[in-house]
Design a protein around this nucleic acid. Structure first.
Lengths: 179, 179
DNA sequence: ACAAAAGTGTTTCCTATACACCCATGC
DNA sequence: GCATGGGTGTATAGGAAACACTTTTGT
């Protein structure tokens, strides 16, 4: 980090220089301070994770040779970076079960199927679509649009939007998000 | 922190110099890095919380003028330290609901009433004793001893121990602690 | 007409909660 | 014998999970 920014700002800046993205959900995870975690010097790292929507068009800056990996088949990382990833997955699952961060990861309009697939990916579990949809509907934080996504079926499936205002209103009335 | 220790070690050392205690449960919370969090210099702090059992006999080192406060009536703290305390309470509650850290805070042998009072303090809620006890019993991680605590009633109440081995065996079989 | 995904309700089970009386003992 | 805290069981309600068929439409 630089001397003139917070750690959160620093994380934002790094993500931006890597992807060009701005205003991305970032959450601080934890510090890693083992003496021998890197061989050349004593380095303390504070890890973060970001939620990057599937509809963002990203040009990864080649300078850092970063790459996307599927969680189920990602390579061994150097130093303690495997631990960092594991820690990030755990935190992501906790966060996703207590806050509607799922919507950070979808385009503004999405189908119920998209939403279900996303949560299935986050928790690495399969859900029954009837139960999933009625759970989501019971939360009453989505708005059904008139539009349909016609790309995945002949019948087409309705698109929904996350209603931030409604959600925050419910929050202030003591509502607890729980999935 | 010194240059030759991890942050966890540093937290242990600070706690030890404050209280003389060793082998205390400590968990790292998060970093605080706002530019103006302290007026005199740019300081980044990593907060921790500790679980200190009610049966520890503690001599607080007067050098640091530390004091114990009841959470329900603790004073305003300087800088961003109120935030730190709030963050610690939130984490403690999360941890206590997913891991049996309650037992870190009790003597080796304790009554069901002790345990219930402890969880009531952590979550600032009252529980029905029948429901509480049957929930604890259904976990099957306590051992009832033959001994009774005679200090709180004429009848006396049985003392229990937390069975770490049993708990870890259950964990390895996929058991999830949940209170 | 048929293939492919969307959409929709009901039943069952289990967990969480509410609730009240008897027991053992010291005084 | 009574006051005090300890100990115990059951009934009810609500949420989670299991489960299958009809609809739409492009080809």
């Amino acid at each position: 980090m630089n001397g003139e920014e917070t750690l959160d700002e620093s994380a934002s800046r790094v993500l931006n220089s890597l992807t060009g993205l701005e205003n991305i959900y970032l959450e601080q995870l934890k510090s890693f301070s083992e003496l021998d975690r890197e061989p050349t010097a004593r380095i303390i790292s504070i890890s973060y994770y970001a939620l990057i929507s599937t509809d963002e068009n990203i040009q990864i800056n080649e300078k850092y040779s970063a790459k996307w990996f599927d969680l189920k088949q990602f390579p061994n990382l150097i130093f303690d970076h495997n631990k960092m990833v594991q820690n990030a997955v755990t935190r992501l699952r906790y966060r996703a079960s207590t806050q509607p961060i799922g919507f950070e990861l979808l385009p503004e309009k999405f189908t119920m199927k998209d939403l279900q697939s996303l949560y299935e990916a986050i928790f690495d579990e399969k859900y029954d679509k009837r139960n999933f949809i009625s759970k989501i509907n019971s939360m009453d934080i989505l708005v059904k649009t008139e539009e349909k996504d016609m790309t995945s079926s002949r019948k087409g499936s309705f698109l929904y939007r996350f209603d931030k205002e409604k959600y925050h209103k419910k929050l202030s009335q003591g509502y607890l998000f729980k999935i």
